[in-house]
Design a binder for these strands. Structure first.
Length: 104
DNA sequence: ATGTTGACCTAGA
DNA sequence: CTCTAGGCCAACA
């Protein structure tokens, strides 16, 4: 049985470049509202290289936190093509990624 | 099992 | 827009 954290990492790995998701979206994808549990999974940061933790932002459009620092997170997101200013995404909905459901 | 913490969210004023 | 209050869940001591 994978832990909740492992599930979060798995979802993160599915996020393509230039796309971002909110902690709430990840929690909702897991049929739960464990927003903070998702954040905790990132905070544990067991596989920062494998998992694109930098593509996770807050629902308000703010960048949130990052293991290597918010500044580094912004730089990475901007490299992806996302427009950010003052640690906040200009068009969050435009870069919002929708997780695939069990339906195909 | 209980208490505390955390890269949070939503609603109300 | 800002600030306050309540709620939510999992992992760890």
């Amino acid at each position: 049985m994978k832990t909740f954290n492992e599930l979060c990492y798995d979802l993160l790995k599915q996020i393509p470049e230039g796309k971002v998701v909110t902690y709430g979206d990840i929690a909702h994808a897991l049929n739960c509202k464990a927003y903070q549990a998702v954040g905790n999974a990132m905070a544990n940061n067991p596989n920062l290289i494998i998992v694109p933790c930098h593509r996770v932002v807050k629902s308000t459009g703010e960048i949130g936190q990052y293991a290597l620092g918010t500044a580094r997170k912004v730089e990475l997101l901007k490299s992806e093509g996302i427009e950010i200013e003052h640690l906040k995404i200009k068009n969050l909905a435009k870069f919002r990624f929708h997780f695939a459901h069990s339906c195909s």
